[in-house]
Simulated assay, not measured.
Amino acid sequence: MAPSTAAANAKWLKKIKWDEHGLVPVIAQEVATGDVVMFAWMNRDALAKTVELGEAVYWSRSRKKLWHKGEESGHVQKVLEIRLDCDDDVVLLKIEQAGGIACHTGRHSCFFQKFEGDDWHTVEPVLRDPEMIYTNPKK
Protein backbone atom coordinates (compact mmCIF):
# COMPACT_ATOMS: atom_id res chain seq x y z
CA MET A 1 0.00 0.00 0.00
CA ALA A 2 1.50 3.32 -1.02
CA PRO A 3 1.35 6.08 1.59
CA SER A 4 -1.11 8.90 1.06
CA THR A 5 0.33 12.05 -0.49
CA ALA A 6 0.07 13.97 2.79
CA ALA A 7 1.81 11.22 4.75
CA ALA A 8 4.50 10.75 2.12
CA ASN A 9 5.37 14.46 2.14
CA ALA A 10 5.30 15.12 5.91
CA LYS A 11 8.76 16.20 7.06
CA TRP A 12 8.39 14.59 10.50
CA LEU A 13 7.56 11.23 8.88
CA LYS A 14 10.65 11.41 6.67
CA LYS A 15 12.90 11.39 9.77
CA ILE A 16 11.84 7.82 10.57
CA LYS A 17 13.94 4.97 9.19
CA TRP A 18 11.24 2.77 7.66
CA ASP A 19 12.16 -0.84 6.87
CA GLU A 20 12.17 -2.33 3.36
CA HIS A 21 8.39 -2.85 3.63
CA GLY A 22 7.73 0.76 4.65
CA LEU A 23 7.09 -0.22 8.27
CA VAL A 24 8.43 0.79 11.67
CA PRO A 25 8.15 -1.24 14.91
CA VAL A 26 5.94 0.35 17.57
CA ILE A 27 5.85 -0.26 21.31
CA ALA A 28 2.71 0.71 23.24
CA GLN A 29 3.39 1.59 26.88
CA GLU A 30 0.60 2.30 29.32
CA VAL A 31 1.29 5.58 31.12
CA ALA A 32 -0.55 4.71 34.36
CA THR A 33 1.37 1.47 35.02
CA GLY A 34 4.51 1.80 32.90
CA ASP A 35 3.66 -1.61 31.42
CA VAL A 36 4.58 -2.40 27.85
CA VAL A 37 1.23 -3.73 26.68
CA MET A 38 1.77 -4.28 22.98
CA PHE A 39 4.15 -4.43 20.05
CA ALA A 40 2.92 -3.77 16.52
CA TRP A 41 3.86 -2.16 13.21
CA MET A 42 2.96 1.12 11.55
CA ASN A 43 3.36 2.45 8.05
CA ARG A 44 3.35 6.17 7.25
CA ASP A 45 -0.42 6.33 6.91
CA ALA A 46 -0.95 4.53 10.25
CA LEU A 47 1.33 6.95 12.09
CA ALA A 48 -0.21 9.97 10.39
CA LYS A 49 -3.71 8.69 11.27
CA THR A 50 -2.60 8.08 14.86
CA VAL A 51 -1.51 11.71 15.13
CA GLU A 52 -4.73 12.90 13.49
CA LEU A 53 -7.07 10.84 15.74
CA GLY A 54 -5.08 10.83 18.97
CA GLU A 55 -5.71 7.06 19.07
CA ALA A 56 -3.43 4.23 17.98
CA VAL A 57 -3.78 3.04 14.40
CA TYR A 58 -1.49 0.21 13.32
CA TRP A 59 -0.69 -1.63 10.10
CA SER A 60 -1.96 -5.20 10.14
CA ARG A 61 0.58 -7.28 8.25
CA SER A 62 -1.74 -10.29 8.12
CA ARG A 63 -4.77 -8.34 6.83
CA LYS A 64 -2.66 -5.86 4.86
CA LYS A 65 -4.69 -2.88 6.01
CA LEU A 66 -4.83 -0.16 8.63
CA TRP A 67 -6.12 -1.36 11.99
CA HIS A 68 -7.58 1.15 14.46
CA LYS A 69 -6.84 -0.50 17.81
CA GLY A 70 -10.14 -1.23 19.52
CA GLU A 71 -12.26 -1.03 16.37
CA GLU A 72 -13.84 -4.40 17.22
CA SER A 73 -13.18 -4.76 20.96
CA GLY A 74 -13.66 -1.18 22.12
CA HIS A 75 -10.22 -1.32 23.74
CA VAL A 76 -8.86 1.78 22.04
CA GLN A 77 -5.50 3.26 22.92
CA LYS A 78 -5.57 7.01 23.57
CA VAL A 79 -2.15 8.32 22.57
CA LEU A 80 -0.72 10.81 25.05
CA GLU A 81 2.80 11.01 23.66
CA ILE A 82 4.80 9.71 20.70
CA ARG A 83 8.56 9.19 20.93
CA LEU A 84 11.22 8.08 18.46
CA ASP A 85 14.30 6.16 19.58
CA CYS A 86 17.91 7.33 19.14
CA ASP A 87 18.33 5.43 15.84
CA ASP A 88 15.06 6.82 14.42
CA ASP A 89 13.80 3.28 13.78
CA VAL A 90 11.45 2.43 16.68
CA VAL A 91 8.37 4.36 17.81
CA LEU A 92 7.12 4.41 21.40
CA LEU A 93 3.50 5.30 22.08
CA LYS A 94 2.65 6.34 25.62
CA ILE A 95 -1.02 5.44 25.91
CA GLU A 96 -4.11 5.15 28.06
CA GLN A 97 -5.57 1.69 27.46
CA ALA A 98 -9.39 1.64 27.40
CA GLY A 99 -10.84 -1.19 29.44
CA GLY A 100 -7.42 -2.18 30.78
CA ILE A 101 -7.13 -4.85 28.08
CA ALA A 102 -4.60 -4.54 25.25
CA CYS A 103 -4.30 -8.17 24.17
CA HIS A 104 -6.72 -10.07 21.94
CA THR A 105 -6.49 -12.90 24.50
CA GLY A 106 -8.37 -10.72 27.00
CA ARG A 107 -5.30 -9.90 29.09
CA HIS A 108 -3.91 -6.55 30.18
CA SER A 109 -0.73 -7.04 28.16
CA CYS A 110 0.36 -9.13 25.20
CA PHE A 111 3.48 -9.96 27.24
CA PHE A 112 1.81 -12.41 29.64
CA GLN A 113 4.26 -15.30 29.24
CA LYS A 114 7.37 -15.39 31.42
CA PHE A 115 10.38 -17.64 30.94
CA GLU A 116 11.24 -19.41 34.19
CA GLY A 117 13.42 -22.47 34.64
CA ASP A 118 13.26 -24.12 31.24
CA ASP A 119 9.80 -23.17 29.97
CA TRP A 120 7.28 -20.36 29.39
CA HIS A 121 4.63 -19.76 32.05
CA THR A 122 1.46 -17.67 31.87
CA VAL A 123 1.73 -15.01 34.58
CA GLU A 124 -1.22 -12.71 33.81
CA PRO A 125 -4.89 -13.70 34.07
CA VAL A 126 -7.51 -13.38 31.38
CA LEU A 127 -9.53 -10.32 32.42
CA ARG A 128 -12.31 -10.97 29.95
CA ASP A 129 -13.07 -13.96 27.74
CA PRO A 130 -12.10 -13.03 24.16
CA GLU A 131 -15.34 -14.57 22.87
CA MET A 132 -17.25 -12.04 24.98
CA ILE A 133 -15.04 -9.19 23.79
CA TYR A 134 -15.44 -9.89 20.10
CA THR A 135 -19.10 -11.00 20.15
CA ASN A 136 -20.23 -8.06 22.29
CA PRO A 137 -17.76 -5.27 21.52
CA LYS A 138 -17.46 -2.27 23.83
CA LYS A 139 -19.23 -4.02 26.71
Rank of each mutant, 00 (worst) to 15 (best):
N9T: 12
G74Y: 02
P3Y: 02
R128C: 08
A56P: 06
F111P: 13
Q97C: 04
T122Q: 14
A8H: 07
W12I: 05
T122R: 13
R83V: 14
W18K: 11
P130F: 02
E20M: 15
A40E: 02
C86I: 06
W12R: 03
E71M: 07
K78E: 15
W12N: 03
H68T: 03
F112A: 14
D19R: 00
K138Y: 13
A28E: 08
F112P: 08
V37F: 06
T33S: 15
T135S: 08
L93F: 00
G74M: 03
N9H: 14
V37N: 09
A32N: 14
H21Y: 13
W12S: 01
T5M: 10
E124W: 11
T5K: 09
S62L: 07
V51D: 13
F115G: 01
V51H: 05
D19C: 07
A98F: 14
W67K: 01
F112M: 08
G100D: 09
A2E: 08
V123Q: 04
S73Q: 06
I82M: 13
H104K: 08
A56R: 02
K65C: 05
D119T: 02
W18A: 06
W59R: 00
A56N: 07
K14Q: 14
A48N: 07
F115Y: 10
C103L: 10
I133T: 08
L92F: 13
N136G: 05
D87K: 12
E52P: 10
V57S: 04
H21C: 13
